[in-house]
Amino acid sequence: MPNTSGPAEVRGLQPDGIDHSPRATAVLSYFVNRLTVAVLVAITVSIFAFSLLRLSGDLAAELAGDDATAAEIAEVAKSYGLDRPFHIQYLDWAGSALQGDLGVSIFSNEPVFDVITQALPVTLQLATYSLILSIVIAIPLGVLAAVKQNTWFDRGALVFAVSGQAIPNFWLGLMFILLFGVMLGWLPISGQDSWVHFILPTLTIGLSAMPVKMRLTRAGMIEVLQSDYIRTARAKGLNPNIVLFKHALRNAVLPVVSVTMVTFGRLLGGTVVVESIFALNGLGFEALQAITRQDFPVVQSVVAFVAFVYIGLTLLSDLINAQLDPRIRLS
């Protein structure tokens, strides 16, 4: 007898119960499942973010400085509430955070909420511009590379992509400053007053975010272009460009869309270097400064905030994908 059932059944694994339930239940259980995991992960990550600067063992001693006496350390601990048990401190912070109160910066006495809301627009602009730039370059390049597979153009595009992944971000930024800011004098090299100030930072991040999307587009297009429906579309004499961009790209570009959403979440905490090079007061730069100053209320809230946005975006992207492609939620 041919063994079509496969070794999974031989081992007596539980059959997947979802397969047999009605579609609606499957969708609902997938959503509930995904949501539960997201909430659990969010709680874990917030505990991690909270403990980050406390990992040295004694945050109060660090804050008080090297030559502080025990009494001074105790005073620092008391004034910041660091003398309470860890879980009380955490619950206190998390409880207030849920009501929108993230505490105050110990450096500037500014509410952490304000620090975040002031820095966020800068980083959001930077992330949005960079992603748009990376998509505008990556998709046409990926499509062309797939159409002209294994030609000099394809190889050139691959070299471009590999280079983009291998250039250190901070160094590329400095090179842009030297070239466009100092030697040519075309563009401002620091500040955030107008859109012109965002050109060089956008170029720096956009070029490093581009290669992954280009490779995904190329791989997706190569696969789609071999499929039957494309052959049919071509055979019935449709305009090749319509086949390429309307029929093929639409399917090939799905992974690029979800990667873009994930990259957006990544960039909120990942633009530190570029922000510090171009003197942009974004979220990353604020976090970097807070880290060097041991400003723990700012650090824990920014890290948790960025993580929460990421969790939300991936959840959203998963749910959208599951809605679009039934194979995902049933597997």
Binding site: V37, V41, L53, G270, A287, T292
Partner: peptide, 24 residues
């Protein structure tokens, strides 16, 4: 395992590394 991977993925890696180096 997937829960650990998810938690790790949602942390902003660069910021966490900066903080860890600052502490240790």
């Amino acid at each position: 395992v997937m829960y650990l991977v998810n938690a790790k993925l949602s942390l902003p890696g660069l910021l966490v590394s900066l903080a860890l180096v600052a502490v240790f």
